[in-house]
């Protein structure tokens, strides 16, 4: 369990990183928090010729409010974002981040690293898709911006080229009409989810403007479902006054069919495909209800 030989560089700028990546393309890998890369090296599952350590890069943002978004730079640790006051502007981050691994892992692991790694069972890619975050990418030609929902292409695979660096991610901040919910099921506390859902509902008065649910751990990438129609039918004529249990019970009539579409993983010893469908169906009904009620409460000025 010792890494094979590799060259190690520690550039101080994004341009330097991109230069090293280009020079050794496709055999260079970025090291940020190392929570995925270092075990992979130790198990000799990857043999990059060069490790480009980005921890000394100076020209990436930290955690910054920028317009209607919270921008998080490439070297920001998950634990830093979790505890940052500005994170309150993106409630889904607050809800989801405690579920990422254990505190020790979050203290090292970076936000952008998790996105770039693209594990289909990870929380942050799903959150990014659910709230339609945007990813800033640097390469030798300059920079480009990619919406989260088109960033993840397959398991552990993204649109990032071998000579590109993910420099930051921008999460849109919440409005007074937004409600969020997050839940995941894993076999043990801190494990990757067998299945999880993140939900964003926007409601103005009786009108459901948005109801996006992104499921993770169930397919090659996070998968997002527009739940407006189902949620409208579940809340029915009474709207926000509908009994909470009645909403969930009604949703439970629809969510098994949705889960069947969303859950395409073949499953493993921890969770068969059928079991993950059961989980998604149950979590979707619960969390859609919750996010809806939170959206309604937010509209009504309840914190």
């Amino acid at each position: 369990m010792k890494a094979p030989p590799f060259a190690y560089v520690r550039p101080a700028s994004v341009a330097g990183v991109v230069e090293h990546l280009s020079r050794d393309e496709p055999d260079a890998k970025i090291l940020a928090g190392g929570q995925s890369l270092v075990p992979v090296l130790a198990m000799r599952l990857a043999r990059p010729a060069t490790i480009v350590d980005i921890n000394a890069v100076e020209d990436v943002p930290g955690v910054e409010r920028r317009g209607g978004a919270l921008e998080v730079g490439a070297t920001v640790r998950q634990r830093e974002l979790e505890r940052h006051p500005a994170t309150a502007a993106v409630p889904l981050l607050r809800l989801s981040m405690p579920w990422i691994g254990h505190r020790e892992v979050r203290s090292r692991g970076t936000v952008c690293g998790s996105l770039a790694h693209g594990d289909p069972a990870a929380e942050l890619p799903a959150v990014a898709c659910c709230v339609e975050a945007e990813l800033q990418i640097a390469n030798q030609q300059g920079t480009r911006t990619v919406p989260a929902r088109t960033f993840f292409t397959s398991a552990m695979t993204t649109v990032l080229g071998p000579a590109e660096m993910l420099t930051s991610v921008r999460f849109p901040t919440a409005t007074a009409e937004d409600g969020y919910a997050f839940a995941e099921i894993s076999r043990r506390h801190g494990d990757y989810a067998l299945a999880g859902v993140t939900v964003h509902v926007r409601a103005a008065g009786d009108e459901i403007l948005r109801a996006d649910m992104t499921a993770f751990g169930v397919s090659d990438t996070p998968v997002t479902w527009d739940a407006r129609e189902v949620l409208r039918s579940a809340t029915g004529a009474a709207g926000p006054d509908t009994d909470r249990r009645a909403i969930t019970t009604s949703l439970m009539r629809d969510t098994p069919a949705i889960a069947e579409q969303l859950v395409t993983t073949s499953g493993d010893i921890h969770g068969s495909r059928g079991y993950r469908r059961r989980l998604v169906a149950a979590l979707a009904a619960q969390e859609l209800t919750l996010a809806y009620l939170r959206a309604v409460d937010a509209t009504q000025g309840v914190p």
Binding site: L95, A183, R244, R245, T248, A285, Q286, E287, T289, L290
Partner: peptide, 9 residues
């Protein structure tokens, strides 16, 4: 079913 787990998240 009933929403037994909803509060936990």
């Amino acid at each position: 079913p009933h929403p037994a787990r909803a509060a936990s998240s």
